Each structure stands twice: as C-alpha cells, then as structure tokens.
Computed example of a mutant assay.
Amino acid sequence: MWNRTGLPAVFPLQVKSPPGADYYLVLSSEESGDEALAAYFKGGAFFKVLVPPGRFVLHFASGSGWQGERRLFGPETRVFKLPDVLEFAIRGAGIKGGHKITLTRSGAYLQAAVKEQYICQVASLDGPVPEPRPLQETGHLFRLGGDRHERWDLHLRWRLGLRAPEAGTAEQLWQRRRFVLGSPLLPRRRVIRHDPITRQAETRFRSYSVRSLFCG
C-alpha cells in the first residue's frame, strides 16, 4: 500500500496464507520502530511484494470487511506479530536475500514458518558468439563455449557458492568447456605460437542482458 522509507523496494517477501480472511501487513524498523512498508492481500491468494533493505518486525492483522488503516477490520480484527526479526539485504554478488512466510491457522491463532528466498541476477551474452580472438599482450586465448543458457546456469551455480567438482569427473570436464567470468575453476589457457600474434579487429557487436531468477 505504501513505502515510507524512501529506499528502493528490491528484496522479495512472499506470504502464503489460509483462505477465509484478508490480511493487512506492516513492516516496522527494528531500530527505530517506525513503520516502513504496508501491504494488503487476500487469504489463500498468491502474494509477493518487494521491500526495501533493512531489518524489520512484521505485524499482521486479519479479518473481513476492511474499514481503513485506523479501524482495520473492525472489532473482530485479529492481530499477529512475527516473533523473529527479518533482514532483507544483499547476500554475496548479485543475490538479493528475502523471505517466504507460510501462515497456518491453529484454532483461533496463526502460526508462521519462515524460510529464506533469493533473487539472483546474472549477466548473459546475447546473440551469436564470435570466434575467439588472440591477444598479443598476454598470449592467452579463451572461448565462450556452449549457448547462453548453459553459461547462465553455470554462472548462477558458481555465484551461489556451490563446491567445485572433483578433478577428472564428467562435471568438471563439462565446466572446462564453459567460460564464466571471474570463476577460479576456469583458468585461461596459454597458447604457444611460433608466429607473431596481431590483434584482430572486433567484427561483431556483443550485447549482454541481466536476468533475475528466484533461486531459493
């Protein structure tokens, strides 16, 4: 409904709720107690919102027959406060850390289960991949192998901090056929040449796109 922090809302918050009531959600700053963001959603319906960075206490109000932010759902309003403070922040390179909350009803009370949720951002090469270009200064030659979807998948797994495969396995050989910028698993190979190497002019324009994916 509103964001009073003045900060961009970029971190994911998803709430799964039981049907039979509507919900009013308010995020309050852990440090100051000021209300930062509010949202309204219907029970049982898919709900996801982006929130600003920070550490927040989450307050829920539920009921039927919305009467505004002062009266909420009237005298039958039920309120619920999440016991844990939730942090919304960057987790490593290009990973935005948020949360997924599942509300369940136990008699007249609500219970909440919380797990982390992430948005991963990776860059991929668009268009056809040109032939490798020799470099005179370093004597190195590298190639962007595979299609952009394979490279994007490998890049994503590297950013999530997955362990390197054992040497000589099929997984390691597959990775060595792909190139991920900045990955320690994929060193550049030195090319031995007998003739002088001259820099070749770039013949094609290469463009990159940044993609976002819910990755956990």
Results as ranks from 00 to 15, higher is better:
3 N>A: 00
6 G>W: 01
6 G>S: 03
13 L>W: 02
14 Q>E: 15
14 Q>P: 04
15 V>S: 01
18 P>F: 07
18 P>D: 05
21 A>D: 07
23 Y>G: 02
23 Y>K: 02
25 L>G: 01
27 L>T: 00
27 L>S: 02
31 E>R: 13
32 S>N: 09
33 G>P: 10
34 D>Q: 14
37 L>E: 00
38 A>F: 01
39 A>N: 01
40 Y>D: 03
44 G>P: 09
45 A>K: 13
49 V>Q: 00
50 L>E: 05
51 V>T: 01
52 P>I: 03
52 P>D: 02
54 G>V: 00
57 V>N: 11
58 L>R: 02
61 A>H: 08
73 F>R: 00
73 F>N: 02
76 E>I: 05
77 T>P: 09
78 R>A: 14
82 L>A: 10
84 D>H: 08
84 D>V: 13
85 V>R: 11
86 L>I: 12
87 E>T: 14
88 F>M: 03
89 A>P: 04
92 G>R: 05
95 I>H: 05
95 I>G: 04
95 I>A: 08
102 T>L: 14
103 L>Q: 07
104 T>K: 13
104 T>D: 12
104 T>V: 15
106 S>Y: 08
107 G>R: 09
108 A>H: 12
112 A>M: 13
114 V>M: 06
114 V>S: 04
115 K>I: 12
119 I>L: 15
119 I>N: 05
120 C>R: 01
120 C>E: 08
122 V>E: 02
122 V>C: 06
123 A>G: 04
129 V>C: 04
133 R>H: 07
135 L>E: 11
137 E>R: 08
137 E>L: 07
138 T>E: 11
138 T>I: 12
138 T>V: 08
139 G>E: 05
140 H>Y: 15
142 F>K: 02
142 F>T: 09
145 G>T: 07
146 G>R: 00
150 E>R: 09
150 E>L: 14
152 W>I: 05
153 D>A: 14
154 L>G: 00
155 H>P: 02
157 R>T: 10
158 W>P: 02
159 R>L: 15
159 R>G: 06
170 A>R: 12
170 A>T: 15
172 Q>P: 06
175 Q>V: 14
177 R>L: 08
178 R>G: 08
178 R>W: 07
179 F>G: 00
180 V>F: 06
180 V>Q: 06
182 G>D: 05
184 P>V: 12
186 L>P: 01
188 R>P: 07
189 R>Q: 12
190 R>F: 08
192 I>R: 12
194 H>N: 10
195 D>H: 09
195 D>L: 11
200 Q>N: 01
202 E>S: 07
203 T>Q: 10
204 R>E: 13
204 R>I: 12
209 S>P: 03
211 R>D: 13
212 S>D: 08
213 L>N: 06
214 F>C: 01
216 G>Q: 11
